[in-house]
């Protein structure tokens, strides 16, 4: 009796599986941490418009790189830089010709305290803060851009010794500032920008010419080569609806 029931269940599951695969496709996506909020919005629209489901994993680009080379099931990769997708392409880990820039990041100096950061970044030259957070320049492009911005302002890193705290990625950097443990920090504008303005605290949007552009590239990975949902997602990212969403989070395109 019980045996017969479980066999029927198994048969039912087996008969459903090819159906699910053929109709509503699924695509596994690795997404740079700074693109978390816009990608969640895009994935929701994508599912509504195409029926395909995008399964999103968020994290640091370097970690994803290591995972992809060790058999991670990701089919599309939205990196935080342009060098990692290029590297994957050269190593034949991605589909040739699929690489494109999906967003250009904007760096912002942000504090959770209203009125703390002025609109010139002059606060950096006053000695009033104990901790300035940035993403680790070794691993995060926003950290490299933050370093460049500090250099442009004429602030030597020795002057900040012991006061620089590094987040492993831009999400953690934001967390350090949002909890007040660091008075201010360089983060991605997308993390605090909603509906055309900085939603809370105080901020200085770092001028684009202070650092090399934070070009964020995407690729279809080898595992997604034959998945129509992967191609559909990339097309969708290039489309007008996604572009408008991406801009609304403070990215350039």
């Amino acid at each position: 009796m019980r045996n017969g029931f479980s066999r029927r269940c198994a048969a039912l599951l087996l008969s459903l599986m090819p159906l699910a695969a053929a109709q509503a496709g699924e695509v596994q996506v690795a997404v740079a941490a700074n693109f978390t909020a816009p990608m969640q919005a895009i994935a929701a629209e994508f599912e509504k418009d195409t029926g395909h489901k995008a399964l999103l994993a968020f994290g640091a680009t370097g970690k994803f790189y290591a995972q992809i080379h060790n058999g991670a099931p990701f089919e599309v990769f939205l990196a935080a830089d342009d060098s990692t997708p290029l590297k994957l392409e050269q190593e034949a880990a991605s589909v040739p010709g699929s690489r494109f820039t999906y967003a250009i990041g904007t760096l912002v100096l942000w504090s959770a305290t209203p009125g703390y950061v002025d609109d010139q970044g002059a606060v950096l030259k006053k000695d009033q803060f104990k901790h300035l957070a940035l993403a680790n320049p070794k691993t995060a492009p926003y950290g490299v851009a933050a370093q460049a911005a500090l250099a442009k302002l004429g602030i030597a890193e020795e002057d900040l010794k012991g006061r620089l705290v590094l987040g492993e990625n831009i999400t953690q950097t934001h967390q350090f500032v949002a909890t007040g443990n660091a008075e201010l920090g360089f983060i991605a504008l997308s993390q605090v920008y909603r509906d055309g303005k900085v939603a809370s605290g105080s901020a200085w949007i770092v001028p684009a010419e202070y650092h090399a552009p934070i070009r964020q590239d995407a690729v279809i990975l080898a595992k997604g080569q034959h998945n129509p949902a992967a191609a559909a997602l990339v097309d969708y990212l290039k489309g007008p609806k996604a572009s408008a969403l991406i801009r609304s989070y403070g990215y350039a395109l």
Binding site: H131, A133, N136, K138, T139, G162, L164, V165, L166, G167, E168, F176, A182
Partner: peptide, 16 residues
């Protein structure tokens, strides 16, 4: 906060 000689321990250094 990954500060050298203050909070950057081996496990974090490996991750980096």
């Amino acid at each position: 906060g990954n500060i050298p000689e203050k909070t950057r321990v081996v496990s974090v250094q490996i991750y980096d």
